[in-house]
Amino acid sequence: MKQALHLGAISFDAVKHLVLCRAERRPPKLDLDIYPYLPRATVEKTSAKAYMRLLDRKEEPA
């Protein structure tokens, strides 16, 4: 997981790939430069305050 976070690999498939590569003792191939049509994603760390705001909200009628 540390390697995935360090690389910015956030998808299930990328993390699974890293885990399998580590288990099979082979280098991972996560070079996205060969996929120029994929958009670059930036994901920020979620703050605890954001979750607390969701928990503090009173239940709204449906």
Results as ranks from 00 to 15, higher is better:
Val43Leu: 10
Leu7Ile: 14
Lys29Val: 12
Leu18Gly: 01
Ala48Pro: 03
Met52Lys: 08
Arg53Cys: 08
Pro28Ser: 05
Glu24Gln: 06
Arg53Phe: 07
Leu55Phe: 03
Leu18Asn: 02
Pro61Met: 03
Ala48Met: 00
Pro39Asn: 13
Pro61Val: 04
Leu38Glu: 11
Lys2Tyr: 12
Leu30Ser: 00
Glu60Gln: 09
Val19Leu: 02
Ser11Gly: 13
His6Cys: 15
Met1Gly: 13
Leu38Lys: 11
Met52Glu: 09
Arg22Met: 04
Lys58Thr: 10
Arg22Cys: 06
Tyr35Ala: 11
Lys58Met: 08
Ala48Gly: 04
Val43Asn: 03
Tyr51Lys: 09
Pro61Asn: 07
Asp33Pro: 06
Pro61His: 03
Thr42Pro: 00
Ala4Lys: 03
Met52His: 03
Leu20Trp: 00
Lys2Glu: 15
Tyr51Asp: 14
Leu30Val: 08
Ala41Leu: 14
Ser11Ile: 05
Tyr37Asp: 13
Glu44Phe: 00
Arg22His: 05
Phe12Arg: 15
Lys16Gln: 09
Pro39Phe: 05
Glu60Gly: 03
Ala62Lys: 08
Arg25Glu: 02
His17Val: 00
Glu60Tyr: 00
Lys45Met: 04
His17Thr: 04
Phe12Gln: 14
Glu59Cys: 11
Pro39Met: 14
Gln3Gly: 15
Val19Asn: 00
Ala14Tyr: 00
Met1Val: 15
Pro61Ile: 01
Ile10Gln: 09
Pro36Leu: 09
Arg26Ile: 01
Ala50Arg: 06
Leu30Gln: 02
Glu24Pro: 02
Leu32Cys: 11
Arg57Asn: 12
Lys29Phe: 12
Tyr37Gln: 08
Lys45Ser: 06
Cys21Asp: 01
Ser11Phe: 06
Asp31Cys: 14
Ala48Phe: 02
Asp33Trp: 08
His6Arg: 13
Thr42Ala: 10
Pro36Arg: 05
Val43Gly: 07
Met1Asn: 08
Ile10Val: 13
Val15Arg: 01
Val43Met: 10
Lys16His: 01
Tyr37Val: 05
Asp13Ile: 06
Leu20Arg: 07
Cys21Phe: 03
His17Gly: 05
Glu60Met: 08
Glu24Ser: 04
Met52Tyr: 04
Leu5Thr: 14
Ser47Gly: 11
Lys29Ser: 03
Ser47Met: 08
Ile34Arg: 11
Leu18Val: 07
Ser47Arg: 05
Leu38Cys: 15
Lys45Asn: 05
Glu59Met: 14
Glu60Pro: 03
Gln3Phe: 11
Leu32Asp: 08
Glu24Met: 07
Asp56Ser: 13
Leu32Gly: 06
Leu32Arg: 11
Glu24Trp: 02
